[in-house]
Design a binder for these strands. Structure first.
Lengths: 336, 336
DNA sequence: CTGTTAGCGCCTTCAA
DNA sequence: TTGAAGGCGCTAACAG
């Protein structure tokens, strides 16, 4: 599988490599005839520009790295897919790196991507460790954190795009209150996630303003799964409880709760209203129809990609920017 | 963001670039002391090997391209994600390219990836156009087709890994027959998909062997979606029908049918048994619990990746190989 | 053990 | 309009 190079073409056409290069790149200083002749030859010989060589010179690869620490999170996986769609429209390619449990850390993925000379990196993570990573690596390559809250003290040195989780929490609380609920449970908040903490605070603040009573059930695990949602919900549902609504910290938690309710014969939304957060694809399914707060994955991805592009264009010396997207309440069938 | 190169390090350390190169690559012919010294310097100066330059020499990039023509298919999206997981374990990176409706064709993606000097390409597609693409491009780069059936006449010149759709169809028919069903509908088969045709034939062959009557509803669209599943199912469900089971050509079709049944008050599996194909994530959800035939996405991805690796290692002159994975019946709650 | 030289495929001055 | 020369960052002979 030896590849034909610019040199081969030059020899065959009886011209210099420079001329071939010019033909390929649509340079102005070349006669239309030679250009045509050379282009045809390229076609015929199956010549393909070696983009690696070009990148070596231009020191731009037109590739961005997408790092996905938790591939099992449908939210982040969807984010990654949307990122690809968006970058492609801007002429960039995506190099996808997902983290695996017990495998080498995110650090090494970053190191690799930088060595691979990606023009920028998008980190789709809700882990609290993310900001530190950015601070460590962003001197070497532009990085944007996607979909995670960044605590204020660090925020000035981080580029990120995230849903406004605080507002999302508020929206949920107000919605449930508007429906007449006065005692609700906040299910599955994670203490070690700033994103979750913020979401929770938004909910509590709005709730207390409205005089709504909320009891929080914390999730000890470090990831939100249907399993933990199921477990946590079971603990509540098994004994008598007075709350009339559950706001789940994420859709997966809500799905778990839904299962628990189902098994115990607790009707949703009859006896209990249920609300999620994220609006992952699952929630739209006929039999599910979960009312939830949408993080607007597509807009998030788009915004993140565009920010990264700006950073790449501007090179060094750009101020750091944080963007917050307002979430959207998706009314479906699990609340009343 | 100027990058420190091997040359910079050499100058700082007062040695030649070769020596630095040797230190970096753990070459044997170098004294431990100088190696240490240089490595420390690299660390300190934040040196990172330019993998593009290295690839230029070795003409191996350690990157494979993954082409995903239809990103809206959960099955193929899952496949792509699993591919990444698998390749990473083998020391390869993934460049992800998804097709977009109305955007440039798959051809151009292939051209691009070849220019980018990927070591191989994995095409996750069920389109009938795929084999032709392979034949056109596989002289330039090793390609494996993943998840699609290849018609026998072309098959000898194609590398592919696919579920055995014929057997999958048989399994479904036999299962339904075993449950006592004698009149069933095959919902949403696509005429222009060999994969679908094969699946259908497997089902029909087994059914007729067992004396089970099957009426097929064809899907005119070129993609399987819940919407079309819904529409097609509605047509049947609206008037009286005698069949007691529906085998959907794919899970998405089944999900649409489920919704239709729901709206019309047709109980599943009470009045009607429902079966899907693919075993996409959705089907495992508590409220769904769709009985289906699993394509074993992970195994499929793993097998495809490994085949591609072999092709890459062997270079030219390897015979073509087709691998068929036996699907697995996943019993859940929609059949009886 | 270390350095010199050449070259991977391409682009970019600078001359002709 | 075309070509020759140099170099992007790195590795691979081949000498010392």
């Amino acid at each position: 599988m030896r590849r034909v190079t610019i040199k081969d073409i030059a020899r065959m056409a009886g011209v210099s490599v420079t001329t071939v290069s010019r033909a390929i790149n649509n340079a102005p200083e070349i006669s239309p005839e030679t250009r045509e002749r050379i282009l045809e030859l390229c076609q015929k010989e199956g010549y393909r520009t070696n983009l690696l060589a070009r990148s070596l010179i231009s020191s731009r690869s037109n590739v961005i790295g997408v790092v996905l620490p938790d591939i099992s999170s449908p939210f982040h996986a969807a984010l990654a897919l949307h990122i690809e769609t968006c970058t492609a429209q801007l002429g960039y390619q995506v190099m996808l790196c997902s983290g695996r449990p017990g495998k080498k850390g995110i650090d090494e993925l970053f190191d690799f991507l930088i060595s691979q000379r990606v023009d920028g990196i998008l980190l789709a993570s809700s882990s609290n460790g993310a900001p530190a990573l950015l601070e460590k690596y962003q001197s070497a390559v532009p990085i944007v954190l996607l979909g995670a809250f960044v605590p204020p003290d660090a925020s000035t040195r981080i580029n990120c795009v995230s849903t406004d989780n605080y507002v999302g929490g508020q929206m949920a609380a107000r919605y449930l209150h508007g429906l007449g609920h006065r005692k609700v449970v906040y299910l599955g908040a994670r203490r070690h996630s700033d994103t979750h903490l913020l979401r929770h605070r938004g909910f509590e603040d709005a709730a207390s303003e409205l005089g709504m009573e909320v009891s929080t059930v914390w999730n000890q695990e470090n990831r939100s799964t249907t399993e933990s949602g199921y477990q946590l919900a079971m603990e509540i549902f098994r004994k008598p409880f007075s709350q009339t609504a559950v706001f789940a910290a994420s859709d997966l938690i809500a799905l778990g709760a839904m299962q628990a309710a189902d098994e115990l014969g607790i009707s949703i939304p009859g006896r209990l209203s249920l609300m999620g957060f994220d609006n992952i694809d699952y929630t739209a399914l006929p039999k599910i129809r979960l009312t939830t707060i949408s993080q607007r994955t597509e807009a998030l991805a788009g915004s993140g990609v565009r920010l990264l592009m700006e950073l790449i264009q501007q090179g060094d010396g750009m101020e750091f920017t944080q963007r917050l997207l307002t979430p959207v309440l998706i009314q479906r069938n699990t609340c009343r």
